[in-house]
């Protein structure tokens, strides 16, 4: 059994265990299989959709992170770092703030797509991981500024606090319908990205040699941009901005699944899903007056992980 298959199998088991634990655990531990109506409502109508949404959002971010890393040949790439999440949130905020909430997912995908196009165009020839990350920082800050502008100009200021809260990233109170929406977009994005898998593998040789062995790089790039936009757009429309899952997930599974970018895609998606379900359990169990936002928790854990990976790359001279 190859490393990738072994990792995938272990991560499916881990995901199921995490999802089961998410039904069980919370401010009050409940038996998911109890028969009384109150417990059934809490477990199956509140905790289950929330946990499922967390898994789908994490899987979407883990998958797009692995695909973007393969495309840009850069272990620091992910939807959050590169500004795709910020732009997706901007699209959704515009839709919400201007009274077209039903368009939010579509706007999130479209804006994530625009960000992906810009960042892959600018970053295609970036000379090192840090320069690409800087392009992402610029795009993210720009998206943040535009979100503030949209909120500033919003005709309906009553909803501002809700919107700001939403951009912080959370899966609290999500319905099964929202999980299904993100799930459908995850499937669509995954299909596109998996079609690009061979191209990503070829890019291991660098751009020129990949083209010389017969890889159609324009094709690969378009598939990854569309796939990452669908995954990130869906995840952000439902869960707000949740960063670093896309950096951390591929990084964590490389030890078992190996470095082949094609064989990292599915394990990264599974790891991202399991990670976010676990993070959401922790968020729910923390004895705080106001529940900590999942996006905040992800940044608190993911930020240092990101810095660590960047420091290790720099010490290996990977930024030359």
């Amino acid at each position: 059994m190859s490393g990738s298959v072994r990792a995938s199998f272990a991560l499916v088991v881990f995901s199921v265990a995490a999802l089961t634990a998410a039904l069980w655990l919370g401010p009050v531990a409940l038996d998911p299989f109890a028969q009384d109506a109150a417990t059934r409502t809490i477990v199956w109508e509140i905790r289950f959709p929330r946990a499922l949404t967390a898994w789908i959002v994490g899987a979407a971010l883990g998958l797009s992170g692995a695909a973007l890393q393969g495309l840009l040949r850069n272990p620091l790439a992910d939807s959050g770092v590169l500004g795709l999440s910020g732009f997706a949130a901007l699209g959704a905020v515009i839709a919400f703030a201007f009274g077209f909430a039903f368009l939010a997912p579509l706007m999130a995908i479209a804006f994530a797509g625009i960000a992906a196009l810009v960042v892959t165009t600018l970053g295609w020839r970036a000379r090192g991981p840090a320069s690409l990350a800087l392009i992402g920082v610029g795009l993210s800050s720009f998206a943040g500024g535009l979100i503030a502008l949209a909120l500033n100009l919003a005709p309906n200021p009553g909803a501002l606090a809700d919107l700001v809260n939403w951009t912080l990233g959370s899966v609290e109170g999500r319905s099964l319908d929202e999980a299904m929406l993100a799930g459908a977009l995850l499937v669509a994005g995954a299909v596109l990205i998996l079609f690009a898998a061979r191209g990503l593998q070829a890019l291991t040789l660098g751009e020129e040699a990949a083209a010389a062995i017969g890889a159609n790089l324009g094709h690969t790039r378009a598939l990854v941009i569309l796939g990452a936009a669908a995954c990130t757009g869906g995840a952000t429309a439902v869960g707000g901005i949740i960063g670093f899952v896309g950096v951390a997930a591929p990084h964590l599974v490389r030890a078992i699944a190996g470095h082949d970018p094609a064989r990292l895609l599915i394990p990264s998606a599974l790891a991202g899903g399991a990670l976010l379900v676990c993070a959401d359990i922790v968020v729910r169990l923390l004895p705080t007056d106001t529940e900590l936002k999942l996006g905040v928790a992800a940044a608190l854990i993911g930020g240092p992980v990101f810095a660590l990976i960047a420091a290790r790359l720099a010490s290996r001279g990977g930024d030359s």
Binding site: L205, G214, N216
Partner: peptide, 29 residues
């Protein structure tokens, strides 16, 4: 790209292996 690759193989001046894959995986590309 494919038709060209079936006619000619190219080794660039500074060949890269961006990810540390195995020798066999690299050759199999």
């Amino acid at each position: 790209d494919r038709e060209r690759a079936l006619r000619a193989a190219y080794l660039p001046q500074r060949p890269q292996s961006i990810w540390p894959v195995s020798v066999e995986t690299l050759v199999a590309l």
